[in-house]
Amino acid sequence: MEPTTEDPLAEFVAVMRRLRAECPWKKEQTHRSLARYLLEETHETLEAIDTGDVAHLREELGDLLLQVVFHAVIAEQAGEFDLDDVARDITAKMIRRNPHVYGPDGGAAGSADAPDAATVTEVWESIKATEKGRGRRDHPDAVLDLPPTLPALLYADKVLNRLERAGAAPPTAGDDLGDRLLALVAEGRRTGIDPEQALRDAVRRLP
């Protein structure tokens, strides 16, 4: 059965509401029980990106959207929030964290002088730190609100980013394997290379 409306997203939400009401398996699911599927679909989306398969990427983005909508429908039925709330929140966040486009008060006019990408990133991180109540120069804050389940290289990259912004010196390679890996992540940051992606690409090149 193909979608029948001109608003595919609204139709999809309606489908998920019905499935949640009428499908025994979907009735039983919770945010926690669905967590593994969110992780799996995220990794499958990364696989599609790595292979450059656009059709596969389209499919996997749909599977990711399924997870977002499923969680939103569960929350909606519990009277917590719905998909519109999720959309409103992320829209407000994007406007708030991009003052070069929307202006400091979230209006329609941004800065006449568009900043470079590095400045945009710095402003984004500064606004994010303020929103989350993190002091920019407080080193212990470097690991606050970072999910411990992040891949190790990505986790290290984010911590180093925060420490650099706080004025800390980059790590140097030591004898310990972990120290050497951390130094390589720092090197990747200096050269503009994503260490997580670099390692994934290297593994793909193996015979």
Rank of each mutant, 00 (worst) to 15 (best):
M1S: 11
E2P: 06
E2C: 08
E2V: 02
T4E: 12
D7V: 06
E11D: 07
M16E: 13
R17I: 14
R17A: 05
R18L: 13
C23Q: 13
C23Y: 04
K26E: 11
K27T: 01
E28G: 08
H31K: 12
A35R: 15
L39S: 15
H43P: 01
E44Y: 06
A48M: 05
I49K: 11
D50A: 09
D50V: 12
T51Y: 06
H56L: 14
L57F: 09
E60V: 05
L61C: 13
L61R: 13
L61W: 08
G62E: 14
L65Q: 15
L66P: 01
L66M: 04
Q77S: 01
Q77V: 04
E80V: 10
E80N: 11
E80F: 11
V86H: 05
A87W: 09
A87P: 04
D89Q: 12
I90A: 09
I90G: 03
A92P: 04
M94G: 04
I95Q: 09
I95G: 07
P99E: 03
Y102L: 03
Y102V: 03
G107Q: 10
A112C: 04
V123K: 05
A129T: 11
A129E: 13
K132D: 00
G133T: 01
G135P: 09
R137W: 14
P140K: 03
P140A: 02
L144C: 08
L146D: 05
T149N: 05
P151A: 02
K158F: 08
L160W: 01
N161Q: 13
G167K: 13
G167L: 04
A168M: 11
T172P: 00
A173S: 08
G174C: 00
L177E: 11
V185G: 00
V185S: 05
A186S: 05
R189S: 06
T191D: 12
G192C: 00
I193M: 07
E196S: 01
D201H: 15
R205Y: 12
